[in-house]
């Protein structure tokens, strides 16, 4: 699934990040395959969403989050 589809409160793991300047910047911010991301709050009108990545809280819009392919973290599936 894409990162923007991940429900709030879940923990996901990055599978891949799209190429291009935006994807490159996401990489510099720590969105790298294998990185765990906690999906935080959404803004009042549903966009943007806060993601916790490598110790920092980052808010990004849906369109940007859609560049990141993720899967649920293992413990998430088990529970």
């Amino acid at each position: 699934m894409k990162l923007h589809e991940a429900p709030t409160g879940t923990t996901v793991v990055v599978e891949s990040v799209a190429d291009g300047p935006t994807g490159h910047r996401l990489g510099a911010l720590g969105f790298v395959p294998g990185t765990t991301i906690q999906v935080g709050r959404r803004a009042p009108l549903g966009d943007p969403t806060v993601y916790r990545v490598r110790g920092a809280d980052l808010a990004i819009r849906r369109g940007t989050a859609a560049l990141v392919e993720v899967r649920f973290a293992v413990d998430e599936v088990a529970s």
């Binding site: 809280d57 980052l58 990004i60």
Partner: peptide, 11 residues
Amino acid sequence: DASSPVLLEMP
């Protein structure tokens, strides 16, 4: 232009 991302860090 090519859409640059909106990135807001919440310190």
